[in-house]
Each structure stands twice: as C-alpha cells, then as structure tokens.
C-alpha cells in the first residue's frame, strides 16, 4: 500500500543550518517504516533536486538510524533575512516532502 510521508512521519521540518544552508528532517517513530523509506530511497538526491529545482551536486542526504530520520540539506537560494529571502528561519520549506510516497507491505 502506498502511503505519503505526511501521513507516516512523526515530524517533518525544515530550518536554517546557519544563514546559508537549509536543512530538512523527516523523522519517524516506527523503525520498520523508517527502514522502508530509507531502503526504497524515497528521499533520493535526484527526486529532491527535481522537486526543489536544485543541482543534484549540492543536495546532501543522510540516513540517521539512531534517530530514525532522513536528513536533507542544500544551500539556500538567498541567505537568511537578505533582500530576496522569503523565509527567515527556513521553517516553511518542507511541505513538498509530505507528498513523497513509500510502498509499505500490506
């Protein structure tokens, strides 16, 4: 059965990692679900780069087993609080990740 990360995750968030980087955390409380997301490579560099229109070379993805979390980071389009920035904390950039889907065993 296909489910969205928005339905499955305990928390999906985005935030600045310093004024020049954005970072996203997709966190689970069920280790089976986490492993499916990780092993199916749901949050792949290619998919993320396409979604956010980034060069795949600058997108970084980490699987954090102890935290049951996938982390994604890439440089901000404009530095935090600068003239063209639209989200000073970087806190509202995660919504598209809610629609990524994973196939779970029935």
């Amino acid at each position: 059965m296909r489910r969205s990360l928005g339905e499955l995750a305990k928390l999906i968030r985005s935030k600045n990692a310093g004024p020049f980087w954005l970072t996203f955390d997709v966190m689970f409380d069920d280790s089976d679900v986490y492993r499916e997301v990780r092993d199916q490579n749901v949050l792949s560099i290619e998919r993320l780069a396409a979604c956010y229109r980034q060069d795949p070379a600058v997108v970084r993805v980490f699987a954090h087993d102890a935290a049951l979390a996938i982390k994604v980071s890439f440089p901000r389009p404009a530095s935090s609080g600068s003239a063209l920035d639209t989200d000073v904390f970087g806190g509202q950039q995660y919504a598209p990740l809610m629609d990524f889907t994973v196939e779970l065993p029935d």
């Binding site: 310093g18 970072t23 982390k71």
Partner: peptide, 17 residues
C-alpha cells in the same frame, strides 16, 4: 529518550554526523 537525544544532532546542522 535515546531517539530524542540522537535526533538532536539533526537540529540546525547540515550534516548530523
């Protein structure tokens, strides 16, 4: 919890490791 403390390395860091 082990997960809450482990998760903290994610916060605000581009690379958690």
């Amino acid at each position: 919890t082990p997960q809450s403390v482990a998760s903290h390395t994610l916060y605000e860091n581009a690379d958690p490791f």
